[in-house]
């Protein structure tokens, strides 16, 4: 197990390195003056020269990349004219357009995205596995048909439609909830939860459709296995059959996929974040891409990429824990 984790960690590191190298290359080696782009449209030539200096754009490409990596691992000192700005590790550089350290910007945005991801995962796990199990156990009945239909509708509705619908229903028409605005958990947990309710529901609903289908098919598969027949032939009731013997096999892939999806929420929840005005990572990515704030884009891609890679390792480990027959080597 330890050996497996070490090997996977090494592999993950390699993937992240390749990822950063590609992103770095795309943005900094591409035609156009990266210093001008990073600095923003309102920069004067002096400022651009300074940015060029700080990004060591005069050096060979591999040196630039090495500086970038060094910054992540050991921090960096930037001289802005007379004074020296210290950027602690992990340092993703400076956002010249915002006059802020990129790491600080990420740290500011992380809680909103993490709140969204955790809550949405709870929704899709409850809703997705619940309806999935129900439609597997009531196969052929009206329940299954209704659930199948709802699932299909859920997958087919983009979050900007369902989100808008939820907002109109609960905030405008019923007036049960205020229009959501992000309140950090540490400030006021109750307000945090009330305000996150709609984003969780919108994202969770969208994702849960996939989980309904996965749970349903893996439950049906497990119920058709020989060992279920054995216990049925020994007079074990249907309820304990499902609870004790079928459920475990059926939820193993659900858990694994959830972990992987959780990781991808750190870059993929853009639409939901924009819809509900959540100051999250996804929003940061969109904004910085729009304004071509290169250091921020590179940092966000690196962080979200790392999240996906780590989540996939967690998914594999969880799968092996849920299904003891899977040996991790």
């Amino acid at each position: 197990m330890t050996g497996y984790l070490l090997r996977r960690a090494a592999g993950a590191l390699a993937v992240v390195l390749v990822l950063t190298a590609v992103v770095y290359a795309t943005f900094y080696i591409a035609p156009g003056d990266p210093a001008r782009l990073a600095c923003g449209p309102r920069c004067n030539p002096e400022q651009i020269a300074q940015v060029r200096e700080q990004l060591s754009l005069g050096d060979p490409v591999y040196t630039q990349y090495w500086h970038f990596l060094q910054g992540i691992l050991a921090g960096h000192d930037y001289s802005t004219g007379a004074e020296v700005v210290h950027c602690d590790a992990p340092c993703f550089g400076l956002s010249y357009q915002n006059n802020q350290q990129v790491t600080d910007m990420l740290v500011e945005r992380l809680p909103a995205t993490a709140s969204l991801a955790v809550g949405a995962m709870a929704v899709w796990l409850l809703l997705g596995t619940g309806t999935g199990l129900l439609s597997a156990l009531r196969r052929g009945g009206i329940t299954e048909r209704v659930l199948t239909w709802l699932t299909l509708a859920g997958t087919a509705t983009p979050v900007f439609i369902s989100g808008l619908g939820l907002l109109m229903l609960f905030c405008t028409y019923l007036e049960w909830l205020p229009f959501p605005s992000y309140v950090p958990l540490t400030d006021d947990p109750e307000q945090w939860a009330w305000n996150m309710l709609l984003p969780w529901a919108a994202l969770g609903l969208l994702e849960s459709a996939k989980y309904t289908r996965l749970t349903r098919s893996s439950m049906l598969e497990t119920l058709a296995e020989d060992h279920i027949r054995t216990f049925r032939a020994y007079g074990v009731g249907e309820r304990s059959l499902v609870a004790r013997h079928a459920l475990r096999g059926a939820v193993a892939p659900v858990i694994a996929l959830s972990a992987a999806d959780f990781g991808s929420m750190f870059g993929n929840a853009v639409l939901t974040e924009m819809m509900f005005g959540l100051p999250g990572i996804g929003q940061l990515l969109v904004n910085s891409t729009k304004s071509l704030d290169l250091p921020v884009v590179v940092a966000v891609v690196t962080v979200t990429g790392t999240a996906v890679v780590v989540a996939n390792i967690v998914a594999d480990v969880l799968y092996a824990v849920a299904d003891r027959r899977v040996a991790l080597r």
């Binding site: 027949r229 049925r232 032939a233 020994y234 007079g235």
Partner: peptide, 25 residues
């Protein structure tokens, strides 16, 4: 009644002993 019969009165032994047992327990 069927559940009481199964295993209590008449018990079945299946062909493939690996797949006929719950792999997790």
């Amino acid at each position: 009644g069927l559940r009481r019969l199964r295993g209590g009165v008449a018990a079945m032994v299946f062909q493939d002993p690996l797949s006929s047992l719950d792999p997790y327990q």
